[in-house]
């Protein structure tokens, strides 16, 4: 009876270790604002976005009768960086954001007037055609930075609540794992404190993590993900590479540790108890 209970507790401990590992990995990466910002810097995200935004502007300018010269100096890299970081703050802290494009539009208008003047013409910014072009540029900037401010605000309010709950959930998981561990130790105190069952749980959790990684990689094409634009995709790929690396390390350590524990248990068991 004690053996059956111990095996069941070992199974539960394996599940709790798996959850702890996954939770810790996610909390230290995707749920960590500083980590995400470091990945943005590693991926040269701000510089890439600068190029992406201008490239998107060119898509609208080509059909506007104007040259790409009107896109010179519309915004600085500092403004872009600031806007992107505001989006990150909104997602992680639930702050409402609004991206200010007024300066961009004013600079664009000045550039358009200068270009049109060279041809001896005058531009009417109130005309529908020009209004549509300016609106397209405004929307292009906003959508490249944040996809959609409404969506970001929605995500931010939900995600920040999840982050708050995550701290509490983490504590609960640690407590549950410790309790199950202690119960195994207590009921097997005379059998080398239940090392056998702890080793099985550790090996199982390590194996599960490694096998899951293999299954995910075989079923999905993670290496070729493309989302929103190249700059965002690069960041996502860096985060995924990091996560998969952490998975290998965690799974490997757990498996090896479990094997060592099992060997230690069996050596002591043979030497002293039989």
């Amino acid at each position: 009876m004690k053996k059956i209970i111990s095996y069941i507790l070992s199974f539960i401990l394996a599940i709790l270790i798996i959850i702890t590992c996954i939770f810790t990995m996610v909390k230290s990466t995707i749920m960590n604002k500083q980590y995400v910002i470091s990945k943005l810097e590693e991926a040269k995200y701000y510089e890439r976005m600068d190029a992406e935004v201008i490239d998107q502007f060119k898509n609208y300018t080509i059909q506007s009768g104007l040259t790409d010269d009107v896109l010179e100096d519309l915004f600085t890299i500092e403004k872009l960086t600031n806007d992107i970081n505001n989006v990150i703050d909104s997602i992680y802290e639930g702050k409402k954001i609004e991206i200010d494009t007024s300066e961009i539009i004013e600079n664009l208008k000045k550039n358009i007037e200068a270009e049109v003047e060279k041809e001896g013409k005058v531009v009417d910014f109130e005309e529908e055609a020009m209004q549509e072009y300016l609106k397209a540029i405004e929307n292009a900037y906003e959508s490249q930075i944040s996809y959609s401010t409404n969506v970001v605000n929605e995500i931010g309010s939900t995600f920040s609540k999840i982050l708050n709950l995550a701290d509490k959930a983490q504590i609960a998981i640690y407590i549950a794992t410790t309790i199950v561990f202690l119960i195994i130790v207590i009921i097997n105190i005379k059998q080398i404190i239940g090392l056998k069952y702890i080793s099985i749980a550790t090996m199982a959790s390590g194996l599960f993590i490694l096998v899951s990684k293999l299954i995910i990689e075989s079923k999905t094409d993670l290496k070729n993900i493309m989302l929103i634009n190249q700059a965002t995709t690069k960041v996502i790929q860096l985060v995924l590479d990091d996560l998969l690396f952490k998975v290998i390390i965690a799974g490997g350590i757990l498996l090896v540790f479990g094997v060592i524990l099992s060997l230690v248990y069996n050596v002591i068991n043979k030497k002293y108890l039989t």
Binding site: Y7, F11, I200, A204, S262, N266
Partner: peptide
């Protein structure tokens, strides 16, 4: 130890 590993594999399959 191998027996313990087999039990661990069974746990993984169940999960």
């Amino acid at each position: 130890t191998i027996i313990n590993l087999i039990v661990a594999i069974i746990f993984v399959l169940i999960i």
